[in-house]
Design a protein around this nucleic acid. Structure first.
Lengths: 126, 126
DNA sequence: TTTACAATTAAACGATTGTTTAATTGTTTA
DNA sequence: TAAACAATTAAACAATCGTTTAATTGTAAA
């Protein structure tokens, strides 16, 4: 990346190189985008938010979000692979809940905040 | 929603109904998921972050993120429709930059935060 | 009014995604 | 061990998405 020049030159060209270099560390942006993508489906988002408020088994999750259990199971797999939720088996049931991590907690707050911004006047969970 | 009962009963069943009702206001979750989806593509995320730091024309954006101009134009359209960026024309060029809104600002900070969490030890822009 | 350049749009494409139905695995109880 | 129930996995499908190439629109300079 020794000789990068912008096709056009308006603002500080000096910054351009360093910004481009940061932008090139695509790995970072890919990771972050992946995380946002996890919450980019409304059903998955509903499940995640539910599991931030209560631990629940798959059948009850399915009942609360009004979906089939295979569909729910699929989304749980995605959220779990992302490290956003954890599970424990108790007898025949598997219970899921939000992971007790800084990331999951931050994302939950971020979702609440974005909902505050975009849906003013809404009624919050509890 | 008068007679909703959970298939199984573990924790407080009383909460279940109110949570389900909140979860049913799907409109809200759809809106929020839509916003996260906008940042759920690494190239679109790179463009958004770039435009949070500097105003730039399409050709230069394309050069900095190493993409074709039609591809960039497509992402700009998505981000603009979401209200995350704005544009102004000056002569032959169209300049884009992050919108000066609470939402765009919050999202920018959220991206930074998530990157801090997931990519520790990274070098920040500027 | 041509010519050149910036940007957008259109059409086509391959790839990914979310859901459904059916089959399978895991666990408990009769 | 057989039957019942919870959960996951598999296969198939339609729908969405991001990128490419080509064509088009918009603006300015020759």
């Amino acid at each position: 990346m020794a000789e990068f020049t912008l096709p056009h030159h308006h603002s500080d060209v000096s910054d351009a190189l360093s910004i481009k270099e940061t932008l090139d560390k695509t790995g970072n942006f890919t990771k972050v985008a992946e995380i946002f993508k996890n919450l980019g489906d409304s059903n998955r988002l509903r499940i995640f938010c539910l599991l931030c408020h209560r631990e629940e088994c798959v059948i009850d999750i399915a009942a609360m979000v009004d979906m089939t259990t295979p569909a729910v199971s699929h989304h749980l797999k995605v959220l779990k692979a992302a490290g956003l939720i954890i599970s424990r088996r108790s007898g025949k049931e598997v219970y899921y809940r939000a992971a007790d991590t800084f990331e999951a907690d931050f994302l939950h707050k971020a979702v609440d905040k974005v909902m505050d911004i975009t849906c003013p006047g809404r009624v919050d969970i509890e």
